[in-house]
Design a binder for these strands. Structure first.
Lengths: 208, 208
DNA sequence: ATAGATATCCCCGAAAACAATGATTTTTCT
DNA sequence: AGAAAAATCATTGTTTTCGGGGATATCTAT
């Protein structure tokens, strides 16, 4: 009797990387390579109509960041195991990726063995991090990651587009005073003193 | 008699990509593969002490954007031919990369033939663009690219860090009034109405 | 149903940003 | 050397932000 194959797709905007992973995985008996995608939109479209076990998900996508993409994938089907792949070894990104439901974080220079074992662990409910990632996480107390609410995020994006508090208020039908509250909370959460720095920091941390 | 080999280095923060290019080029007789680098700092350090003919340069580097890196490479030695490699097919980036002295722009999914022919053309003084890139350039009038001066760029970076006009003035020893002039010029050049939008747009366009 | 988080709205005063011009001095390039 | 571009400083006035408070709602999950 044979066990069911693990259906897997890969999402990355680098064709080289897609090729590399496909080549790496195509001969593994337990793994069924089900597709390659270069952006979030096509991936989500596919996932809405096709069953998949594991998604290898890059953090840098052209149309959306990997964190939001991960959240949306989990909304479509919480059982899908998402493994983040990236070169970024910045604490804030890794941490938030895991908070968003990813069950692993691989660097792109991971070996084939490492990738395959991650997939195995992911299927059995475990979590895998690339070598070194664990160290990065340990070096930080988890107190310094801004947690922004839905509304705050909305305001943040509009601020980045140059709208004033009044304009934002008009746009999303709330009082400008409320906008200023959100704005003040954002400044506090990101520990900055004006919107310019807020936008910069939030962009770097991929909140926008 | 044999012609002199072309010395070439590759700069990219993706190990997979580095490997791919090395593999692709290692057996070409006219090409001497001289090194792989993952960031701008180590590349510039190497170039200051070693002669190189061609640099394949990624636009996304961890410590600096490819545009600035290219400018600095050309300062070290204007004879070095820089070929940009990237997935980004955004007009502003391509155009500015070429303005900065790059003599080619390849997408990362370029074929081996395409890469090798680009290197050849680069050595003979020509310019190569990947398929499709030329079309992108033609679709734009070259009027909409902000040209920022050195001082403006300096101010821009400090603005992004959250400094006020007064603070910036103190920091770079000019009157706050002058800072506001630069700031106003930046707002005009980027066609935005406040600093938040300026920082956002400038970051997207890799001016920061 | 009740606590805790989130979203909403309010007031005030100081500080900063923005808008519209204009002018002078340096640099830079041809 | 001369023109063009960049950098500098200035005036005046209006709008917006920011920081310090606080007060209700509304949602959410146990």
């Amino acid at each position: 009797m044979e066990t069911k194959q693990i259906k897997i797709i890969i999402v990355d905007d680098h064709p080289v990387v897609l090729q590399g992973f496909e080549y790496m995985l195509q001969d593994i008996p337990d793994i069924q390579f089900a597709g390659k995608f270069a952006d979030a939109a096509s991936t989500l479209g596919y996932l809405r109509h096709n069953a998949v076990d594991v998604v290898l998900l890059d953090i840098n996508l052209p149309d959306k960041n990997g964190i939001d993409a991960c959240i949306e994938i989990k909304q479509i089907n919480p059982d899908i195991r998402v493994i983040a792949i990236s070169n970024i070894n910045e604490y804030s990104i890794i941490q938030r990726m895991l908070n968003s439901g990813a069950c692993g974080y691989l660097l792109k220079n991971a070996s084939a063995d490492e990738v395959i074992s991650s997939i195995g662990k992911a299927m059995s409910g475990g979590v895998t991090l690339s070598k070194g990632i664990q160290d990065i996480l340990n070096d930080h107390d988890s107190g310094d990651l801004p947690v922004v609410t839905r509304r705050e995020k909305e305001v943040l994006a509009l601020l980045a587009n140059g709208l004033s508090s009044v304009e934002i208020g008009e746009k999303i039908f709330i009082s400008p005073l409320t906008v200023e509250s959100h704005r003040r909370n954002l400044l506090q959460k990101f520990k900055v003193t004006n919107v310019a720095a807020l936008v910069h920091k939030a962009t770097e941390m991929k909140y926008i």
